[in-house]
């Protein structure tokens, strides 16, 4: 029973000057599905990611989220529609504790306006959101640290904060930018569990990952990029033995 596609990408192309980073890329992600995207360095994964999140402007193509074109919208509008992201190099807001970082993720979900804030009528919503943020912190496994200074977090904990912050935006699509990068094996296993839990909530997950060993057991479908072109997609076990993938991906790995 394939559920509806929440993200549809068609003919997505990005050129930087003379270099084509992404070329006529097409794929879709369904609700509650984990789509993995792999490829060697410079394959265009990060560019694709930034095109969907609105950080880069596409040269041409179409990105539909919940049926509506989101290409060309500024990043904050895309986030408001329910597309949240994590950063590969953890980028917390240094000037605030863990829970406030998570609450920034919930920014677009606050209903009360500035007058309500000044008049004190927003306090109830603030309390509710704060409770919800604490739950998310619990969910990712930082339960004992809501008031910690982000500077004191370990790298792995910082990655978990990234996820809690993105979840606070109540996304329908969550973009992960190389979430396993820099994590220990134990942390990777915990992370995989969290990502499965997120997908089980019906949230669509697009995972960009360099590490096949992390991705293949986790993803339900996998797309492979090389030189900005999708060279294969399918079930993880199909990808594992796909000749073009072995050639492009593992071949370049072996060479490096």
């Amino acid at each position: 029973m394939p559920s509806a596609a929440i993200l549809e990408v068609r003919g997505l192309t990005k050129r930087f000057g003379g270099l084509t980073a992404v070329s006529s890329l097409g794929f879709e992600v369904r609700e509650g599905e984990i789509l993995g995207m792999i490829g060697p360095n410079g394959a265009g994964k990060s560019t694709t990611f930034n095109l969907i999140a609105g950080t880069y402007a596409a040269t041409q193509g179409e990105v539909r989220f919940a049926g509506e074109q989101i290409l060309g919208l500024p990043p904050h509008r895309i986030a408001a529609r329910g597309v949240m992201r994590t950063f590969q190099h953890n980028r917390p807001f240094g000037g605030m504790p863990v829970i406030d970082n998570v609450l920034v993720g919930a920014h677009t979900r606050f209903a009360s306006g500035l007058w309500a804030v000044v008049g004190g009528r927003a306090l109830r919503e603030e309390t509710q959101r704060r409770k919800r943020a604490a739950e998310l912190i619990e969910f990712v496994g930082l339960g004992e640290l809501p008031h910690a200074d982000v500077a004191t977090l370990s790298f792995g904990q910082g990655r978990l904060l990234e996820i809690a912050r993105a979840l606070a935006g109540e996304p329908r699509l969550l973009l992960f930018d190389e979430p396993a990068a820099g994590l220990t094996l134990a942390e990777c296993e915990r992370l995989a569990g969290i990502i499965r839990g997120i997908a089980a909530r019906g949230i669509a997950v697009l995972l960009i990952e360099h590490d096949m060993h992390f991705l293949l057991p986790l993803a339900q479908r996998v797309a492979v990029l090389n030189f900005g072109v999708k060279i294969a997609d399918g079930l993880p076990e199909q990808i594992r033995n796909h000749p073009a993938v072995l050639e492009a991906y593992l071949g370049s790995h072996a060479a490096a």
Binding site: H76, M84, F87, R91, G94, L103, H107, S112, V117, R165
Partner: peptide, 24 residues
């Protein structure tokens, strides 16, 4: 101590990440 204050601090610390979190 509201979404606005946090948005302000987020803008100060890192405007690009703030935008990705939905802050205009």
């Amino acid at each position: 101590r509201s979404w606005f204050g946090r948005a302000c601090r987020a803008v100060r610390d890192n405007p690009e990440v703030a935008a990705a979190m939905g802050v205009d």
